[in-house]
Amino acid sequence: MTSHPSSPPSVADLFAADGRLKAIPRRAARREALLAHLAATLFETGRDYREPEVNEALKGVHEDFPALRRYLVTGGFLSRTKDGAAYRRQQRTGTPGGAIPAVA
């Protein structure tokens, strides 16, 4: 058996042969896995993106790019400036260097 219970769900089956997303998953775990995949494959760490750039990248995946953009921001995969002019990919796995934050 090759799958492990703790491994994240695969997102490959969410995509059609042409590379476009069939549907945005309703189940939270599946959507989280998809968003992690999109953030990692579409956006570079440490680079700012203007909203039209984010939209263009997401349009290539699914026609409901505003929903994907919103999920990426609310899920913590992308941060957005208060004026909405710039987006940046976020690291969601712990803190930089793998350090555990101190608890007071």
Rank of each mutant, 00 (worst) to 15 (best):
Val54Ala: 12
Tyr49His: 13
Ile24Asp: 01
Gly75Lys: 03
Arg92His: 07
Pro5Ala: 10
His4Asp: 13
Ala102Tyr: 03
Arg88Ala: 15
Leu38Val: 02
Tyr71Ile: 00
Lys82Ser: 14
Arg27Val: 06
Thr2Ala: 13
Ala57Glu: 09
Tyr87Pro: 07
Pro66Cys: 09
Arg27Ala: 12
Arg30Phe: 02
Ala23Trp: 01
Leu72Gln: 11
Lys82Gly: 06
Leu72Phe: 11
Leu58Phe: 08
Arg70Gln: 12
Thr81Gly: 09
Ala29Met: 01
Ala99Val: 14
Pro101Met: 11
Gly75Trp: 04
Leu68Cys: 05
Arg31Glu: 04
Leu68Ala: 09
Ala28Leu: 12
Glu63Met: 05
His62Gln: 05
Ala85Asp: 13
Leu14Asn: 02
Ala67Arg: 14
Ser10Gln: 13
Ala29Glu: 12
Glu51Gln: 12
Arg47Pro: 04
Thr41Gln: 14
Ala104Gly: 13
Gly46Ile: 10
Ser6Ala: 14
Glu51Ile: 04
Glu51Phe: 11
Ala12Phe: 02
Thr2His: 08
Leu42Asp: 03
Asp48Thr: 07
Thr81Arg: 15
Gly76Ser: 04
Arg31Met: 02
Gly94Glu: 08
Ala33Pro: 09
Phe43Ile: 06
Glu63Pro: 00
His62Ala: 02
Pro96Leu: 13
Pro52Ile: 05
Gly46Trp: 10
Ala40His: 12
Gly19Lys: 06
Phe43Asp: 10
Ala23Ile: 00
Gly46Ser: 08
Gln90Asp: 10
His4Leu: 12
Phe43Val: 07
Asp64Cys: 01
Gln91Arg: 13
Pro96Gly: 03
Gln91Lys: 08
Phe43Pro: 08
Ala17Phe: 00
Thr45Arg: 15
Arg88Met: 14
His37Pro: 02
Ala28Val: 07
Arg88Val: 10
Leu58Ser: 06
Asp64Gly: 01
Gly84Gln: 11
Asp18Val: 00
Gly98Ala: 09
Asp48Tyr: 13
Val103Ser: 13
Arg80Cys: 14
Gln91His: 11
Val11Lys: 03
Phe77Tyr: 15
Ala67Cys: 02
Leu21Cys: 07
Ala102Trp: 04
Glu51Trp: 10
Phe65Thr: 01
Arg89Glu: 12
Ala67Gly: 03
Thr41Asp: 12
Pro5Glu: 04
Ala57Cys: 05
Ala17Leu: 09
Gly46Cys: 11
Ala33Leu: 04
Phe65Ala: 11
Leu34Cys: 03
Asn55Gly: 09
Gly19Leu: 05
Phe77Arg: 12
Val61Arg: 05
Leu42Pro: 06
Asp13Trp: 01
Asp83Pro: 00
Arg80Val: 15
Glu51Asn: 09
Leu21Trp: 03
Leu72Val: 10
Thr45Ala: 15
Glu51Pro: 14
Thr45Ser: 15
Leu68Tyr: 10
Gln91Val: 03
Val54Trp: 06
Leu72Cys: 11
Arg27Pro: 00
Leu14Tyr: 01
Lys22Gln: 05
Ser79Trp: 01
Arg26Trp: 00
Arg88Glu: 14
Arg30Gln: 13
Glu53Ala: 15
